[in-house]
């Protein structure tokens, strides 16, 4: 039980993919303008990350390790993630059209979201068991959610601020992101 909490909380706070590993910055900046979209995007990432962790672990264990092909991990995993994202896209388009519309270009972007690939590669590097790998993927997705929602809140406040002209738009967002990231370093050494 303790280990489950350590893995999940570790992935959310200590090893937050966006704020301490600097993975998945593109959707982090791209979709954090509105809280509603941020929630939708986070949901997609949580789902894809968890599912990708599970599928890649199985492929790694049953195919790649068996035939000593672990050097193919990156290629195989990219294949898995890309297919998964396409699949999620088809499902969303059919069953949740408003969310599909709101996510727009960002859903296909998960394909190249390095946070997802980072999560599954870390799973393999640390030689997690199946259960732990899925937990880590899930926790990583939650960490992404936390970062995105926190930042969406900050950005909605920034909209109403009198920002110096040169800093308007992306620059002030990057500065704010850096500050949030610094704050998250306070969690280092929690476990």
């Amino acid at each position: 039980m303790r280990e489950i909490i350590v893995i999940i909380m570790g992935a959310i706070l200590v090893e937050n993919f966006v704020l301490s590993k600097f993975l998945g910055i593109c959707p982090f900046l791209g979709i954090s303008k509105k809280l509603g979209n941020a929630v939708g995007m986070s949901g997609a990432v949580v789902f894809v990350m968890t599912a990708a962790s599970a599928v890649t672990w199985l492929i790694n264990d049953l195919l790649l390790l068996k035939y000593n092909l672990d050097y193919l991990q990156t290629v195989a995993f990219i294949l898995v993630i890309a297919s998964l994202v396409q699949f999620v896209e088809i499902i969303l388009k059919k069953f949740v059209p408003p969310l599909y519309k709101a996510l727009g270009i960002y859903l296909p972007l998960i394909t190249t979201n390095c946070a997802v690939l980072g999560a599954v590669l870390l799973n393999m590097e640390r030689e997690y068991t199946f259960g732990r790998a899925v937990l880590f993927g899930f926790g990583g997705g939650l960490g992404f959610t936390l970062a995105l929602i926190l930042f969406a809140g900050i950005r909605e406040k920034l909209e109403n601020c009198n920002v110096p002209h040169a800093f308007r738009g992306l620059p002030i967002s990057l500065i704010a992101a850096a500050l949030v990231s610094v704050a998250f370093f306070g969690f280092q050494g929690l476990f």
């Binding site: 035939y67 193919l72 290629v75 898995v80 297919s83 699949f87 088809i90």
Partner: peptide
């Protein structure tokens, strides 16, 4: 193995895109 995986996912996706 990689080709087989690709084929498998491709077939699965094309089936899903027809079905849904």
């Amino acid at each position: 193995i990689i080709g087989g995986l690709g084929l498998l996912f491709g077939l699965g996706l094309s089936y899903a895109s027809k079905k849904f």
